[in-house]
Write a protein that binds this DNA or RNA. Sequence first.
DNA 1: ATCTTTGTTCAGAAAAAACTTTACGTACTT
DNA 2: AAGTACGTAAAGTTTTTTCTGAACAAAGAT
Lengths: 182, 182
Amino acid sequence: MEDKHEEKLNKAQERVIETLAKNMELYGITMSTGLLYGTMLFQDKAMTLDEMGEALGMSKTSMSTGVRTLMDLQMVDKIWKKGTRKDHYEVNLDWHQTFIDFFSLKWRAASEQNVHAMKKSRLELQSLLQNEELSEDLKARVERSITRIDNALAYYDWLSRFIDTMESHEIFELVPKDPVKK
Amino acid sequence: MEDKHEEKLNKAQERVIETLAKNMELYGITMSTGLLYGTMLFQDKAMTLDEMGEALGMSKTSMSTGVRTLMDLQMVDKIWKKGTRKDHYEVNLDWHQTFIDFFSLKWRAASEQNVHAMKKSRLELQSLLQNEELSEDLKARVERSITRIDNALAYYDWLSRFIDTMESHEIFELVPKDPVKK
DNA sequence: ATCTTTGTTCAGAAAAAACTTTACGTACTT
DNA sequence: AAGTACGTAAAGTTTTTTCTGAACAAAGAT
């Protein structure tokens, strides 16, 4: 009888875990790592690599790499347990912060690289324009490229300020954590 | 001589295209599709599938699937050209809108699925709690699971409102497209 | 100092994804 | 109506990613 209840609990947890994992896949986290995250989420204790491997039926090596991915994204934390030599991990329950960290990590890095490349190319094109002996056709194409780049740069400038408002938590003034009651 | 200039233009464009493509990979767009996007970005005309295949040295089938991905994300538009039977595509230059579309499409879908699963599981757990003959231990674990779910649901509620402010462009009041001059 | 325990690196196997070729359906042309 | 041009679906191949098991290095225990 007790088993029946136990099973219901597991069923309910597994539905959430699997849905979560499948959707994490959408933004670059592997299904297995997602399952790992979900499993830790419903665990009442911080887990060791061996426990994870046991729970998912996977190798400890995979747990090691999975948990590192989650650590890099600040989705789990390594915690101190005295008396044992094993590392223990638990999920970071501040999902708002997790979102912000994930977002700023990925998008900031990408946009900085893009901006760098665009500025460099823009300079080159600008100096190409100085050139007297440039055919009309080519000149037009260069100018057009510069326009395209400027358009993109304006967006990245916005994106950068957007990420700022998240990192500074200013975003919570526009979109409060607790919905304003009417 | 003219070729020299031509080459400089290409070099400058390719740097941007490749950086862009590499970073698009980070959020689920394949490198080739990213290259396709970048190529179209610097093209002065809407492109046909054949032109794309030509430009990237890839099969037309790949162009077809790539361009569809970009269409789904609203990153390119199919446009009408009279007099020809081929489809023509060009990039959507409103990057702010592209960002919003991408974001709301991907994140909204994911969070709706997660919320659905969580609410369903939450109900099951709640009804499990009604049960008299529940061991203390199991009861505590069920309650804990509900807490975890509620925590996540609060975040998804916030995320939903967050996406709303983007879709409604309200976000541009907090983070203006044009930086305010001091 | 030697022997364990623990996490990680590395090489190879298994699985998944991306790409191409062939084939097909639809719509336009003649 | 027959032929051609076009986009996409399906099947097959190649490339990439993920996962595992063995070997290793660091730290602790005896």
